[in-house]
Nucleic acid binder design. Structure first.
Lengths: 197, 197
DNA sequence: ACCTGAACACCGTTCAAGT
DNA sequence: ACCTGAACACCGTTCAAGT
C-alpha cells in the first residue's frame, strides 16, 4: 500500500495471504482457490507457486499467522495480578471473541492435516496459546485457589471447555454472541463444578 | 452382497455411501471425489448424480448416518438407574470412543456448511444426541445431585467439555487413547470443579 | 529473482441419449 | 427408472521460457 505499483508486484506473498484470509472469512475454505487468488491479485495463476509450494502451504501459513494473533491477544489480556476467576474469565472472553470473528481460520488452525515441515511450527503455536493457560493454572495452584491435581490435566480440561464452546459456535450450533454472553457462567461452572457445595 | 451382480448395480446409493465412508476414514475428506467413488463402485462418473444432487448432499447423508450411529450408541449406553457420576462417565467414554474411531466423520457432522434442505435433519441429529445428556442432567437435578442452575446451560457445558476433548483428538493435539484414559478424571473435574472444597 | 503461458491430469455438474 | 458419454467450466501443479 505504501508504494504505487511496485516492480513485478512488490510483496506478492503478503498480498496472497491477505486476499486468502478475506476469502476464508467471507466464503469459507471450500471456495478458496489458488487460481482465483491469483486473479484477484492481478497475477498469473502460476505465480503463487513461487511463494507457496502447495495449496496446503498457504493454508498452513494462514493458520500460523492465526496462532500468532490468538497468542498475542491472550498474552495481552492476561493480568497475573488478578484473582483466578476474573483472570480466567478475561482470557475466556478473548478466546471466544477470536473464535466468533475467525471461525473458519480457527478450524484451519485445529485441522489435522498440515505440511510435514509446518508441523513443528504449528505445535509451537499451540504451545504458545496453551502456555498462557498453563501459567494461570500454575499461579492459581501456587496460591491455593485450585485443587492439587495434575496441572497439565487441569489446563487441558480448561482448554477443552473453551474449545468445546468455540466449536459449537463454529459449527453453528450456538450463536457466537450467546457464547460470549455466557462466559462468566462458563468459568463459574468450570471452577465450582456441577455438584452442589 | 446378498445378490450376485444385480441389475444395473442394485443399491448404488448404499454402495456409494459405504465406499465414501471408507475413503473418509482412510484418506480424509480432502481426497474424497465423486468421480473416484464412481470408479471404485464400477459405475460411470455421472451415476452418483442420480442419487445425490450434489457432493455436499452425499457428505450430508454421511453426517446424518453418523448422528444416527452416535445417538444410538449413547442411548444404548445410558443407564438411568446409575448415580450421576458413573452414568455420565459411561456416556463420556462412548462419545470419546466414537470421536477416536470416527474423527473425520465427526468433523463433517459438526461442519457449518450443509445443504439447505438437510439443515433440519442435521439439527434433529444434534438434538437427539444432546437429548441423552439433557435427560442425565434433568434426572440428576431432580435428585439433587447437581446444582440448581439453568439445565440447558449445564448440558451445554457438559457437551462442551466432551466436545473440546474430542476436538483435541481430532486435531491431533491429544492422543485418542490418552483422551479415553482420562475420562474418569474429566467427569470428576466437571462435577467437582477446579476450586478446592 | 520473479513471473508468464502452455500443458497435464484431474475435478463437479449437466444433459442428451441409451437400456 | 437408472445409467452412460460427451461436454463445459473449473481446479492444482509443473516447467520451459521470458523479463
Amino acid at each position: 500500500m505504501s508504494r504505487s505499483r511496485p516492480y513485478h508486484h512488490g510483496d506478492l506473498r503478503a498480498a496472497l495471504l491477505e486476499s486468502a484470509e478475506r476469502t476464508l472469512r467471507e466464503k469459507g475454505v471450500a471456495s478458496l482457490s489458488l487460481r482465483e487468488l491469483a486473479r484477484e491479485t492481478g497475477v498469473s495463476h502460476a505465480a503463487p507457486g513461487r511463494h507457496f509450494k502447495d495449496k496446503r502451504a498457504l493454508l498452513d501459513a494462514l493458520a500460523l499467522a492465526g496462532y500468532d494473533r490468538l497468542a498475542r491477544a491472550l498474552e495481552g489480556a492476561d493480568d497475573p495480578s488478578l484473582p483466578l476467576q476474573p483472570r480466567l474469565t478475561a482470557l475466556a472472553r478473548v478466546y471466544l471473541a477470536f473464535a466468533a470473528e475467525n471461525a473458519e481460520l480457527l478450524a484451519l488452525m485445529y485441522a489435522r492435516k498440515h505440511e510435514p515441515g509446518a508441523a513443528e511450527q504449528m505445535a509451537a503455536g499451540v504451545d504458545r496459546t496453551v502456555g498462557v493457560f498453563d501459567r494461570v493454572i500454575a499461579d492459581a495452584q501456587r496460591r491455593g485457589e485450585i485443587v492439587e491435581a495434575d496441572p497439565e490435566r487441569l489446563t487441558l480440561f480448561t482448554g477443552a471447555a473453551l474449545h468445546g464452546i468455540a466449536g459449537f459456535t463454529v459449527g453453528g450450533i450456538l450463536d457466537p454472541a450467546e457464547a460470549l454472553g455466557m462466559t462468566d457462567d462458563l468459568i463459574h461452572h468450570l471452577l465450582h463444578g456441577l455438584r452442589p457445595r
